[in-house]
């Protein structure tokens, strides 16, 4: 049982390496991962007198969110089109292993790009009060958002544009309800209820705690971490179930 599990883990890492080489290690993807959240953030923040630590915390949450959900949705449709998915389906790996491999690559990408706003913050004199909790939060959030990307990619299509449309239609509303631009404390009660349904809320809240200080967060830290873990499990289980159903339709 355990050796079999280890074998599948090693194979998931092989899939992750393949994903990194093919999908992540190219200029446009890296630039998009950095610029997309930065531009969106600047568009809403310019002209508003907000402290830099508040800005960096929001930018960090959004960067992890956008980068971790950027590529995972397109891998399955792309590999359907190129018929590489058939190659993986014939290999001695389970669907969970394939998805886990895609997720690992996305997590690495999400973590690597999230260092950009952290370094940016440090350059502007922002002090990180709780680096260890921030690291745990970013890793957990990267897993959670990568799993969300896998849910998007379960659409049984070979058209990446279809998946990207679904992905964007979900991601943008989430950004606006997750306390990135308006602190949760300042939201009306219905806004707070809505925010509690978004996983992005919890990583943003955690970033605020770690960067702005102990009183900046709305939810308790353990709740932020538990919520991210629960969303991760929900997204991963949903993704596996949906992919099990959609894989035969793709081949």
């Amino acid at each position: 049982m355990i050796p079999d599990l280890m074998d599948q883990m090693r194979r998931a890492f092989a899939i992750a390496k393949k994903d990194v080489r093919i999908y992540y290690l190219n200029g446009p993807v890296v630039i998009f991962g950095i610029l997309a959240p930065a531009f969106l953030f600047l568009a809403f923040m310019i002209g508003r007198d907000l402290p830099v630590d508040f800005l960096i915390a929001g930018l960090l949450g959004m960067t992890v969110f956008f980068t971790s959900t950027s590529i995972t949705p397109v891998i399955a449709p792309t590999e359907t089109q190129t018929r590489n998915l058939e190659r993986l389906a014939a290999a001695p790996v389970s669907i969970t292993t394939i998805l886990f491999g895609d997720m690992i690559a996305s997590v690495f990408f999400g973590i690597a790009i999230s260092l950009v706003p952290i370094f940016l913050g440090v350059a502007f004199g922002v002090a990180i009060a709780h680096p260890l909790i921030l690291a745990v939060g970013i890793v957990l959030a990267a897993f959670c958002f990568s799993a969300l990307g896998l849910v998007f990619s379960s659409t049984p299509t070979s058209m990446t544009s279809t998946v990207m449309m679904i992905s964007m239609l979900t991601k943008f509303p989430l950004v606006f309800v997750s306390g990135v631009f308006i602190p949760i404390q300042e939201m009306p009660s219905w806004g707070r209820a809505l925010a509690s349904l978004s996983p992005l809320t919890y990583i943003t809240d955690l970033c605020r705690y770690c960067i702005e200080g102990t009183c900046a967060n709305y939810y308790p830290v353990p709740l932020d971490i538990c919520a991210l873990a629960v969303f991760l499990v929900i997204f991963m289980v949903t993704a596996v179930k949906l992919h099990e159903r959609s894989l035969p339709m793709r081949l």
């Binding site: 393949k18 080489r21 093919i22 190129t82 018929r83 590489n84 058939e86 190659r87 014939a90």
Partner: peptide, 12 residues
Amino acid sequence: VVPELSNAYNGL
């Protein structure tokens, strides 16, 4: 398995 259409990864 050798499928009907070539499916090596073109990017590798």
